[in-house]
Nucleic acid binder design. Sequence first.
DNA 1: ATCTGATCTTTACACTGTCAAGTTGGATCA
DNA 2: TGATCCAACTTGACAGTGTAAAGATCAGAT
Lengths: 201, 201
Amino acid sequence: MSQNTKTKHHHGDLKNALISAGLDILEENGLDGLSLRKCAAKAGVSHAAPAHHFGNLDGLKEAISARAFGLFREAMIQAAEAEGSDDRARLKGICRGYLRFGLNHKGLLDVMFGLPASAFLKASKVPDESDSYAVLREACAPFVPEGSTPEIVEVQVWSLIHGFTQLYTSGRFGDLPEKDADQGLFDQVIALLDSLSAAPS
Amino acid sequence: MSQNTKTKHHHGDLKNALISAGLDILEENGLDGLSLRKCAAKAGVSHAAPAHHFGNLDGLKEAISARAFGLFREAMIQAAEAEGSDDRARLKGICRGYLRFGLNHKGLLDVMFGLPASAFLKASKVPDESDSYAVLREACAPFVPEGSTPEIVEVQVWSLIHGFTQLYTSGRFGDLPEKDADQGLFDQVIALLDSLSAAPS
DNA sequence: ATCTGATCTTTACACTGTCAAGTTGGATCA
DNA sequence: TGATCCAACTTGACAGTGTAAAGATCAGAT
């Protein structure tokens, strides 16, 4: 029994185990299903164990979100690369990845965008790991008008795709007529970005 | 004592009193501060009284939201009318009212857009009272391309302003440089709607 | 071999939503 | 008028939650 499966203390990697448990719960039961005690139970520790690593529930959510932002970032990059090398197609690919992540991982998106501002910034900007905003910034770069700050285009694109994703994944568009469904509606809505003018390279 | 202030039963208009209490709590302490028991206490009744009128917490949230959607609708209409009669200015006015409502009443917006899909539809579509979507639809009507369904433009506009409002009111844009602040950033972002082409009247 | 401190458990408490059963009092009906 | 009914509300209870305090355990350093 060099490695008893039920040693009472010193789990070994409880911090990551709790984060993984939280991700599982979010995927299965959404944000409402997440609790410190359920994460602890899933990881096989006492209900108060998470507090030692994360302080409180907000701390756990921030840690979970840091991992989730990594997945989010990868989903956007992957969707963009599937679009080839055209700048506009790439930007739309980012948006498609954004929406797809929301559809497939609504619980994760909810916890990420439910964070307080400071926790959001920390969780979303782990360099070379979870920095999701950098993905957006790079995709928007070819569309920054001369003499303008890049933030404007970035906020335009972010607002459009974030709003669409939130509304769509929450069922706010009701039961759409089939002709508009899914990719169709997305393509038609995201076409608003066709008005962005490509900056001179 | 024709009207004792502390009659034990038969409050009179408890339903509306609880909704008002809920609105107050949301304005003061946000969505996290809202609870059945606090609403009951604020209305001066026992903790289980709200269940009789609303069934459960979701029911109370739906009822609160129905009232909030009325305020939301009025805020958008008022902001639009301040813009005069130009179609595009009116549409942007709607959006400005949307944002302003989010800034001034974040708790309300949170409870409204936190509702499950079916409750959202019921709360947001009380005819001649809380039908907020009708306001958007009418403002978008002049920009529906010939041969297209109105839903596309509506979803474009809704997504853009909803995303911007959510991100802005949650502090997702960080501490913005002053030059982009407030109305400035809003105007620059909403300028994306300048690409919508006015339909032939 | 002892000490120390990080890790985890146990216990406790306030707060939450929700259910079940009891109480009240206005309205209806004989 | 007096009995009855029932909606409105209270009381009590229970499970679940976050979180704080204090105790137990174990790995590693001294």
